[in-house]
């Protein structure tokens, strides 16, 4: 089986690699690039633990071939905010106790980034539906909803400040 050369931007850094056709993007990120913040929880694109941003959209990296990401711009949890700082969602998940074991958290946050991009002021129902492809077994979701609400407010304030 022929290898394929891929080049993509991950968290602002250009990466070029030779990969097998079947290499799943989540394994490329975790095993080849040693960025282990993106997790694997179900293999069937139900749980969302592997959610990343691909060209700005939330995508389940367990159901995406690395070769197809050639030329893409990818953001993982490691690249969401500069080292030592928090994205408003990271801060909100901390403030609102939106995480317990932390396993679903990177995927949940990456999904929420996309959610708030498309809907900066979501209702509770819209948040619940918006994160419905991401399972959390620990929190019961109440505080995740509150986290997304807090982040939405903070991001709106930030936006206002920059206008």
């Amino acid at each position: 089986m022929a290898k394929h050369e891929v080049t993509m931007t991950i968290n602002g850094q250009s990466v070029t690699a030779e990969v097998d056709s079947r290499l799943l993007l989540v394994h490329f990120i975790r095993e080849n690039l040693d960025m282990t913040g993106t997790h694997i929880g179900c293999d069937t694109s139900n749980c969302g633990a592997c959610t990343i941003l691909l060209d700005g959209k939330s995508v389940k990296a367990c159901t995406y071939l690395t070769v197809r990401a050639d030329g893409a711009e990818i953001t993982t949890i490691e690249g969401l905010a500069p080292e030592g700082t928090n994205h408003p969602l990271q801060q909100a998940f901390h403030d609102q106790h939106g995480l317990h074991c932390g396993f679903c958290t990177p995927g949940m946050i990456m999904r929420s980034v996309d959610l708030l991009k498309n809907n900066p002021n979501p209702t509770e129902e819209e948040i619940r539906w918006g994160i419905s492809g991401n399972l959390c077994r620990c929190t019961g979701y109440n505080n995740i909803v509150k986290s997304v609400q807090q982040a939405a407010k903070e991001m709106a304030k930030e936006k206002e400040a920059t206008v």
Partner: peptide, 21 residues
């Protein structure tokens, strides 16, 4: 009080078994 363990999980730096190499 807010949790002391949160930061590593929020930044993708948790260390789960599958993360060991």
């Amino acid at each position: 009080v807010k949790r002391k363990e949160d930061a590593r999980f929020l930044h993708g730096k948790g260390n789960y078994v599958d993360d060991t190499k």
